[in-house]
Design a protein around this nucleic acid. Structure first.
Lengths: 121, 121
DNA sequence: GGCCGATAGATAGCTTCGCTATACATAGGG
DNA sequence: CCCTATGTATAGCGAAGCTATCTATCGGCC
């Protein structure tokens, strides 16, 4: 079932890359750990599906923003990912963009549906 | 040419509806005015194309979130849009979702690439 | 010994929606 | 007369998050 608190899927567009880069900036992780970290960070709103995450990781790697290494030392094969230098620069750039964007929306929303209601003088 | 400050297109996904609803909540407008208002509000970052805006308005109207009325009283045909009651509820709902989402990203970004840089003591 | 859920990764195909390109029409300035 | 701004509209492209499906290992339970 669709978690009722889940964010509308389209909202994730364009910012999911940023979130994954951010999660990998915290520390190297393999896919499943990235997924769990996002789930935890999203307060129930981020239900990132495996079918979303793995292609995304492949894309980030193809763009040289992250780098991977297989770990076969245990019974379970795990593909660890870490940020590259390029990835860190990209993260900082996208984070700046995102803040600017969020401010912009905040300004638009503010007056419209904003602070509960300024008591009419 | 692509405005260099323009937000990556994918960022707009899922929040452009919200912005248009918000702009129409300010006051009724026709398409071209909505476009100009967004352009102005975006500080150069929101270059919403006509080919994006009009289908979006049609979709919002099909969903009964906005309502339209042609004005042929001048040489230029204008289609004025205004929020419906349903649209206003939707705006409030999406605005809440957006704030929650923005907080969530903010938390993820915060520690990673956070506040400019606390002067090292 | 067998089943099931969690763990771990991957791909195919669908859908949505912002984009470019294009079209049409009017108003005003050079 | 052309060029720009104004004003609306549609067709088709591409990106990316989704569902559905597949493979495989491990531990717990009965």
């Amino acid at each position: 079932m669709k978690e009722k608190d889940a964010f509308p899927r389209e909202l994730l567009r364009g910012s999911l890359d940023l979130m994954v880069l951010s999660v990998l900036a915290e520390e190297p992780r393999y896919g499943y750990l990235v997924q769990k970290r996002l789930r935890e960070a999203g307060g129930g709103g981020l239900q990132i599906q495996a079918g979303t995450l793995y292609p995304l990781l492949h894309r980030l790697e193809a763009d040289r923003l992250i780098r991977s290494r297989w770990d076969d030392s245990t019974g379970r094969r795990r593909k660890w990912y870490e940020l590259t230098a390029k990835g860190r620069r990209q993260l900082e750039k996208q984070a700046r963009e995102w803040r600017r964007y969020a401010e912009c929306i905040g300004r638009l929303l503010g007056p419209a549906v904003g602070p509960p209601e300024p008591a009419p003088s």
